[in-house]
Simulated scan of single mutants.
Amino acid sequence: MAHYVGKILKQRPNVILDTWGVAELLIAYGQYANEESYGNFLEWKSLSNETKRKVKKPREYAVLFYTTDDLAE
């Protein structure tokens, strides 16, 4: 996760691990991964039906965020 976030922010992963909290890293990773995943999903969605059958459908979101109400159910 630190490597992925560091690559996006152009920082060394060790700097992120030394200065960020775990919650910050998890949320940043989830946000950046979801942005990339959703972009890939929208690109797939805009393809023609014939091409869609040839390409595997990407996940809409890479990381799912749940509220405490969602977890209670």
Rank of each mutant, 00 (worst) to 15 (best):
L42R: 08
S48Q: 10
L64H: 14
N34Y: 09
W20E: 04
G21A: 06
L42N: 07
N40K: 12
V55L: 09
K45Q: 14
E43V: 01
G21P: 01
Y38G: 02
L64G: 06
E60F: 05
V63Q: 05
K57D: 00
Y61W: 09
K52D: 03
R59K: 10
K54Q: 07
K56N: 00
F65D: 04
I27Y: 11
L26P: 05
N34A: 11
G30H: 08
A62W: 03
W20N: 06
E50N: 11
Q31T: 06
W20H: 13
S48N: 14
L42I: 01
Y38T: 04
S48W: 07
K54H: 05
R59H: 05
I27S: 06
V22E: 14
Y61N: 08
E24Q: 15
K45L: 13
R59D: 02
V63E: 03
L42K: 11
W20Y: 15
K52C: 02
F65I: 07
R53H: 03
E36V: 04
V22A: 13
E43R: 13
E35F: 11
Y38H: 14
Y32Q: 12
Y29N: 10
L47A: 09
Q31Y: 11
Y38M: 05
P58F: 00
Q31N: 07
V55K: 14
L64M: 10
K56H: 00
Y66Q: 06
Q31C: 03
F65V: 07
S37Y: 07
F41N: 02
E43I: 00
E50T: 12
Y32C: 08
Y38N: 10
N49A: 13
L26D: 11
E43K: 14
V55Y: 11
R59G: 03
L64W: 08
A28N: 08
S46V: 06
G39F: 02
V22K: 15
L47S: 07
N34D: 15
Y61R: 11
L47P: 06
W44N: 03
Y66D: 01
E24L: 05
F65A: 10
V63S: 05
L47K: 15
Y32T: 01
L25D: 06
A23Y: 12
N49P: 05
G39A: 12
T51A: 15
E35K: 15
G21F: 02
P58M: 00
Y29M: 04
L64T: 13
Y66N: 05
Y66V: 01
K54W: 01
V22R: 15
G21E: 07
Y61A: 02
L26A: 13
W20M: 09
Y38E: 11
V63Y: 03
V22I: 12
S46M: 12
Y66K: 10
W20D: 04
S37R: 09
V55A: 05
L26S: 10
